[in-house]
Design a binder for these strands. Structure first.
Length: 258
DNA sequence: ATGGCTGAGCTACTCAGA
């Protein structure tokens, strides 16, 4: 089963790229972040033509997440945590893998910059609530997959110039500790688990030729509960979509589980 | 290099992103 996560930076501005990408990679489940549209303007029909059902948690202008799936999904939910600002950042569903029932969680974590503002506090509180909820889910189900745009640089090698980000909301130790806290509940960062020292990124700024110079960062992640590690077939950051015309600033990360 | 692109909403500009 191929599951892909991609922050598309507007689903409507990116629809042709997304359709091309789906035809190329044929995912079973595609998790989108930053769709930047309300549910009623989501391109359901175009994705239906490719054989996918869309489950959308949208919002006007900003944020918004969606799950696009070949098979119909059960228990789709938009209120995983109570969001302090009522922003659309989490959509969950139930996924079946052989005999295992997996809780699938698609997230778009707040950015949190600048760090001396309420935006940073919002990110911290959001992560705190999220961790509390994950602990609770674990009590009933050991099989959890968290995927999406975490807006967290886990380690120094996950960014081209760590010094620039060590006091940034993406790289601050306080935030990276939250990431470790999730991992320590019983997860693997699948990319890092499979690639101990490899330096690859999932995001490059639009400006200053960041893509051409490979000034990027790895902030889109798949966290798989330890009970599912044996099911990993492959993990891959696919840089092709970032090189296309009119790209998102993020590129997809692709997980295959069996 | 704390904003030099990009997108949404709207029709001139601000807000947001990381």
């Amino acid at each position: 089963m191929k599951i892909i996560s991609w922050n598309v930076n507007s689903v409507r501005a990116r629809i042709e790229n997304i359709k091309d990408y789906i035809k190329d990679t044929n995912p079973d489940v595609l998790l989108l972040q930053e769709i930047k549209t309300q549910n009623e303007n989501f391109p359901n029909d175009e994705l239906k033509k490719l054989g996918y059902t869309s489950y959308v948690f949208g919002q006007k202008s900003y944020n918004g997440v969606a799950i696009i799936s070949k098979n119909e999904l059960k228990n789709v939910n938009n209120n995983f945590i109570k969001d302090d600002l009522n922003q659309s950042r989490i959509i969950t569903a139930e996924l079946k893998l052989k005999k295992k029932k997996i809780v699938l969680i698609n997230i778009y974590v707040p950015n949190g910059n600048p760090v001396d503002t309420e935006k940073y506090e919002y990110k911290k509180n959001w992560l705190k609530k999220f961790i509390t909820k994950i602990k609770k889910i674990f009590e009933n189900n050991p099989n959890i997959l968290i995927a999406g745009d975490f807006n967290i640089i886990p380690e120094e090698l996950d960014v081209h110039d760590f010094k620039r980000y060590e006091n940034d909301a993406l790289g601050r130790l306080e935030i990276r500790k939250k990431y470790r806290e999730i991992i320590n509940l019983g997860f693997k960062d699948v990319y890092r688990f499979k690639n101990k020292t490899k330096q690859e990124y999932t995001f490059w700024d639009y400006f200053a030729g960041s893509w051409q110079k490979n000034y990027g960062m790895r902030i889109d992640h798949f966290l798989l509960s330890n009970s599912l590690i044996e099911n990993i077939k492959s993990i891959n950051i696919n840089k092709k979509p970032r090189s296309k015309e009119k790209p998102s600033d993020h590129t997809p990360i692709e997980l295959e589980i069996i």
